[in-house]
Design a protein around this nucleic acid. Structure first.
Lengths: 342, 342
DNA sequence: GCTCCCAGTCGAAGCGCTTCGACTGTGGCA
DNA sequence: TGCCACAGTCGAAGCGCTTCGACTGGGAGC
């Protein structure tokens, strides 16, 4: 059996409670006593029992990461969120439990919160309207979000700045001389369930394009090649003068390439393509390598945990929520150029 | 405050211990009593406190997923492992804590096991010689592996069948008529630290190629485009007659394509390429779409958890370890064809 | 010189559960 | 008819910690 606190106490000739105070500093302990205790702990290889501590103290040092499995599947970006969050949690001495739950299945969530296991939760894949948010609020569980609802109120979140990202992408193309720009978004169903990136990028794109005074056109598109292929033909049918395309749908891109082949267009000579909110790990594999605005996924994960801990450790008094929008980073590729002189 | 077991007991007019027995069936409880208890639980919305239960019973229903961050970064495949494992754990009523640890840092692991938090661990990214395995063994923590050491002994594992996968890939190419086949593996450092896939695929490839009686050549190659590019030129320098390439290095592939451009070769006309142990999510984006042997990642994750639970729930008596090698699934693409008549 | 305060320590009462030993009443069996 | 076995239930003792109230002695303040 592993050593317990009482073993440490005996070896250091102090009371059990003194050891506890020495460890978590709830009361003063003399330097000398503390030294003896520390030594005893080391000699015994003592480690506090997380469960007992949690039971007695009402906080467990365990956080939950709520990640639903989206229709489009989990990609590199999601993995980076998770890894970033896990790292940050560990650095702060917290454990992270993975809670894969269907979005709709509020039961799972209730179960999680009711068990007294977790101190707080980080919610991934947040929708514009998200049941989980309400549930967590009324369960009184501290939480923060990666992404945000339409009205985040006083809830902390870290999200991608879609407004700026779309603006950047549009400006980039406009500066190259493009006057008719298309946007390939995620699927109609993602839009209709209120998936944040889909909705916000759509809005951002339209605003940016309108502000730039260019002709623009958007298509929602399933996350697969054949949908991408069809969508590009539709875009071109709607705007035959299209010379540039912004894509926020990694898996559709290759379909666009197929469509281009069909009509004998080349990138970037006949059409410029830029990817937004995509991992360069993926867009680097395209030929030509795509100009990409890459989301700061790991940072978002870290930040989410950070915010959550501010809320938990921030002693009691209503903390001011942190709400941050992070820009995507530009990785220059070879897929964008001035428009053709048609 | 959430209801406690004593609240349920009072409402059902029984002793606290009877409720406990009704819940986990350690002793017989009459049908009638059980009914009253169940009703009381529902009316109160009772959920057992995981910590208290764990403290008293010595098992927590929490598993750890040990995932180091490999040099090459985390990809789609890894995400699928994780998601599969998380799903399986939840289905069995277990929680999964993510434990991101440096491989070398055995401290982190000791800390995890010493805290009494986890019932067992699933070890990812296992090396041919892996310190963590020893440590877990002597800590007496049940565990299973995704991947395997050189001598897994009686430890349960689920791994990809590299022998068969390389054999399949070689046979596929040989049947098309190829007589000189190259293999692009992961990095030299992956090989030298004993990263299982790198070592085993290397061995498997050589054996399969030799058995098929073809000329073969292999290169270890960093996980990035420029390394891939250089590596292909080296392969061709070593074997100018090369007509086919097996690649187990997603990120190097695009470099190979670049190299082919330089010498004016096309796929599959001048060179057939097949990817092994790669996600089709990635190789589908290549043009042409690559013929791919895709690892059953989610299944591996699920299986790993399954094995772990067999070991934990399998009451006491030394269970026979489960050791399974899963084949990769073939996804046909357009990147392989008969060799050119040069 | 006396009080007061406080740093430093101790003992004990929980936290919400599991599990052990003990108790009761019923039915089977000789 | 008597005895035993056993299903069904209860009370109490932990599990390993945190935290509260209480106690001690010495220094500061007057």
């Amino acid at each position: 059996m592993p050593p317990r606190m009482i073993d440490v106490a005996r070896r250091a000739n102090v009371a059990l409670s003194t050891v506890s105070y020495a460890i978590n500093g709830q009361r003063a302990v003399s330097e000398e006593t503390r030294g003896r205790i520390r030594q005893a702990m080391e000699e015994l290889g003592y480690q506090p029992n997380v469960l007992a501590r949690g039971l007695a103290s009402k906080h467990t040092n365990i956080l939950a990461l709520l990640f639903p499995t989206p229709e489009r599947g989990l990609g590199v970006t999601e993995m980076e969120f998770v890894a970033g969050a896990a790292d940050a949690a560990r650095e702060h001495g917290y454990h992270l439990v993975l809670s894969p739950s269907e979005l709709r299945n509020v039961r799972d969530l209730e179960q999680l919160t009711g068990q007294g296991l977790i101190d707080g939760a980080l919610v991934m894949e947040v929708r514009i309207d998200d049941d989980r948010v309400q549930l967590l609020e009324q369960a009184g569980i501290p939480f923060s979000m990666i992404g945000r609802t339409s009205d985040p109120g006083r809830i902390s979140y870290a999200d991608i700045d879609f407004e700026q990202t779309t603006r950047d992408a549009v400006r980039h193309l406009v500066e190259l001389g493009h006057r008719c720009i298309g946007f390939l978004n995620h699927s109609p169903s993602a839009y209709s369930v209120g998936y944040g990136p889909t909705v916000r990028a759509s809005e951002g794109f339209r605003r940016a394009a309108a502000a730039a005074g260019v002709v623009y056109v958007e298509r929602l598109c399933g996350d697969n090649a054949s949908a991408g292929q069809a969508a590009f033909h539709e875009l071109r049918a709607a705007q035959p003068d299209i010379t540039a395309l912004i894509v926020m749908n990694e898996r559709a891109i290759v379909g666009v390439m197929d469509a281009l082949d069909e009509i004998g267009w080349r990138v970037p000579d006949d059409l410029s393509i830029v990817a937004i909110v995509s991992s360069t790990r993926v867009t680097e594999m395209m030929r030509p390598k795509l100009t990409t605005w890459e989301p700061p996924s790991a940072e978002l994960g870290r930040l989410g945990i950070q915010m959550l801990l501010d809320q938990i450790d921030g002693d009691g008094g209503e903390p001011t929520p942190t709400q941050e929008l992070l820009p995507c980073r530009l990785a220059v590729g070879a897929s964008s150029a001035p428009p053709p002189a048609r």
